[in-house]
Computed example of a mutant assay.
Amino acid sequence: MPSRSKRNRPAARALLAAATVLLTTSVATAQPAPWHPERQVTLIVPYAAGGGTDATARAVARQLGVLWKQPVVVENLPGADGLIGTRRAMEARPDGYTLLLQVPAIVLTKYTPGLKGIDPLAQLAPVTAVSQSPAAIVASARLPVKTLPELFQYCQKAPQPCSIASGETLARVSAKQIAAEVPLPGLITVNYRGTGAIVTDMIANNVNFAFTGITAALPHHRAGTLRILATQGRTRAAVLPDVPTTAEAGFPQFQSTTWFGLFAPKGTPAPVQQGIVAALREAVKDADVRQAISAAGAEPVVNEPAVFAAQVREEDERLGALVKRYPLE
């Protein structure tokens, strides 16, 4: 007759196996708490206050501060086509405490004369998009035009050459494209340091039109002092349902969508990046944040680092090809 210990061995083994499965499952399903900062975070905006990048940064910074229970301070560092602020982020410690909000123009830095071929993307990690918005072609309401074709026809026949405002590198490339492809061979490009000054001069018709974000132009469009003639997305902007896209207006080559994206110094650990993405997903659910993004003519788009990195590479290829056709001077 087998001993009691031998009779209990199968039951003991079954119990041990069940305990092992339970422990393994618990370990596998346990998720570490997302990274969050333990002190102030700086969010750098490499452009002047008042534009779409700045408005987006301030909206998300407020809510990230609430979620993290730490201050998130927006720091505007304009200059050198965004390189001054961008370089500050490039040189920061890769610990999640210095972030950068940038737009597609970042990919053109390496083509800009005088910047010695500096490529910020080689020293930054794309973390996530925050929102995206079609840019727009905006004209002074003092011009006798109401549509994009009318603007181009006016500029082709006007006794004085038309002028286009440029606040950053991408706008200068787009101005060259318009001059060559409309064509407007006498088009004068006037460079500015910020969107605010562009808007002021367009209202006064000191400069005739510009490529710009919807944010700064929208209140003046509604007031009748500026006219948004076309938006550059694949579909009409939700805040401007009556304004056609450039493709609908007959100029599909001027199609472009602006993303506002978060970057961190290269080498920022993956868990830190994931913690930022997780917090941002929650931040854009806030009604005030969504309202701020919507007022900027944009929509929230939070994605994973790998997805955003692919988006940046695609923009790099597209704009790289464009700048080779229309080199910066």
Rank of each mutant, 00 (worst) to 15 (best):
M1L: 07
P2Y: 03
S3F: 06
S3P: 00
R7H: 08
N8P: 00
A14Q: 08
L16Q: 10
A17W: 10
A17N: 11
T24V: 15
A33V: 09
P34S: 12
P34C: 13
Q40R: 14
I44L: 12
A48C: 03
G50E: 10
G50N: 08
G50R: 11
G52V: 08
G52W: 01
A61M: 05
L64W: 13
G65P: 12
W68A: 03
K69D: 15
K69C: 01
P71K: 06
V73N: 13
N76E: 13
L77F: 11
D81A: 10
D81V: 06
G85Y: 07
R87L: 10
R88S: 10
E91K: 10
A92Y: 04
R93I: 00
P94C: 05
G96S: 07
Y97D: 01
L99S: 11
L100I: 06
L101S: 02
Q102K: 00
Q102E: 14
K110A: 09
T112V: 15
P113Y: 11
G114N: 08
D119C: 10
P120I: 09
P120S: 04
L121Y: 07
A125V: 08
P126M: 03
S131A: 15
S133L: 07
A139E: 04
P144G: 06
P144A: 06
V145I: 12
K146G: 13
T147G: 04
Q153C: 00
C162W: 04
I164H: 02
E168Q: 01
E168S: 09
R172S: 13
S174E: 12
I178W: 09
P185N: 10
L187D: 10
I188T: 14
V190M: 09
N191Q: 13
R193E: 11
G194K: 03
N205Q: 15
V207A: 07
T212H: 00
G213S: 14
I214V: 11
T215P: 00
R222V: 03
A223E: 10
T225H: 00
T225M: 00
L229N: 05
T231E: 01
T231H: 00
Q232Y: 00
R236C: 01
A237I: 07
A238F: 03
A238S: 13
V239P: 01
L240K: 02
D242E: 14
V243P: 00
T245S: 01
T245W: 02
A247V: 01
A247S: 12
A249C: 11
F251E: 04
S256A: 14
F263Y: 15
A264N: 05
P265K: 03
G267Q: 04
T268M: 07
T268D: 04
Q273K: 12
I276F: 10
V277M: 07
V277P: 04
A278I: 05
E282I: 07
E282F: 03
A283V: 06
A287G: 08
V289W: 09
V289L: 06
Q291D: 15
S294W: 14
E299C: 01
P300G: 02
V301D: 12
V302F: 05
N303Q: 14
Q311H: 12
V312H: 02
R313V: 12
E314W: 01
E317V: 14
R318Y: 10
L319E: 08
L322P: 02
P327A: 05
L328I: 01
E329N: 13
E329D: 14
